[in-house]
């Protein structure tokens, strides 16, 4: 079917905000927020509890009393190899690892890169209920009497992007406040700025996965199936590269999915950062183009 190429952005904006309002007020939004806060809390505990013990063992009274320099040094010693493994850096002395630990508030860096590893999965969860159910139960038809297919698709996509962004912003601000309170030695402004930069990276990382769920929600009939398929897409490549990576050189395989590019957003080199940003946005655009292709050809 031919469709007018012009998109009614007023309608897209109206539907996006209405969907967002409903999600934030509804039970599913609250549930997701609690899940994310819980994940954040656990990650914070994983970061701060071993630090607390290390710092006490090193002679300081507590983590709260330790200077940022001491904390950073302990993070470098204890977490350096873990960070290097986590972000696929060659070693703990790599430029990217040193940048994360020394040039930026190290505790916030740790939290951001760990949470970035969960964003693809949380994005699959938050994005799975975009259109599949509404198309199956024909609620979409009541809406499509008043707006276009593309407008509906884009509003659902932007709705989950905004929701996901708001939730991760709440989490980052919560973490910044937690670190600022518990470790008063860190400059709060620097902590907040790095937190916000990291939050933007988290939003960009979520985009291809949310776009993937947009496409899948036009292909399969239930939200559950969208979640399962998007999760399979996300995990399959990771499992293959992590399991077989010990035997073969498979780092190139990760680059075939958004997963392989996400930590480039935390890299100190502007070229690497921009390349990762461009590739992640390109993945999102490809999935959205696939969704559009499917949408204008399918029966609703």
């Amino acid at each position: 079917m031919k469709h007018s190429s012009s998109i009614n952005w007023r309608q897209v904006g109206f539907m996006t905000l209405a969907d967002l309002r409903r999600t934030l007020r509804g039970g599913s939004g609250l549930f997701f927020l609690l899940v994310i806060i819980l994940v954040g809390w656990i990650l914070l505990a994983i970061v701060t509890n071993p630090l607390d013990r290390l710092i006490v063992e090193e002679g300081s009274q507590s983590l709260t009393a330790a200077s940022p320099a001491v904390i950073t040094q302990q993070i470098a010693v204890f977490f350096g190899p873990v960070i290097a493994w986590w972000i696929d850096a060659p070693s703990q002395f790599s430029e990217s690892v040193v940048h994360l630990i020394s040039a930026r508030p190290a505790v916030m860096s740790l939290f951001l890169i760990m949470f970035a590893g969960f964003v693809p999965f949380t994005s699959c969860l938050v994005g799975c209920d975009q259109m599949a159910a509404d198309l199956a139960n024909r609620h979409a038809r009541v809406i499509l009497l008043r707006t276009g297919r593309l407008e509906l698709m884009l509003s659902r996509f932007f709705g989950v992007v905004l929701f996901s962004a708001i939730v991760s912003l709440i989490l980052v601000l919560f973490v910044a406040a937690f670190i600022g309170t518990r470790l008063p030695g860190f400059d709060p402004i620097l902590l907040l700025l790095w937190g916000l930069q990291g939050w933007m990276a988290l939003v960009v990382i979520s985009l291809p996965y949310l776009a993937l769920t947009t496409w899948l929600s036009l292909v399969v009939r239930t939200s559950g199936m969208v979640f399962i398929l998007s999760l399979l897409f996300t995990t399959a490549l990771i499992v293959v590269t992590k399991v077989l990576g010990g035997y073969f050189e498979l780092s190139w395989l990760e680059k075939l999915s958004p997963w392989g590019w996400k930590y480039g957003l935390f890299h100190p080199n502007a070229g690497t950062l921009l390349t990762s940003l461009s590739v992640l946005l390109l993945f999102a655009l490809v999935f959205l183009a696939a969704a559009r292709y499917r949408l204008v050809r399918r029966d609703c």
Partner: peptide, 16 residues
Amino acid sequence: LPELRGRFSMLVQDAM
């Protein structure tokens, strides 16, 4: 179709 939005309407059978 976009120009027709709001000018026609429908009771959709079995819509939820």
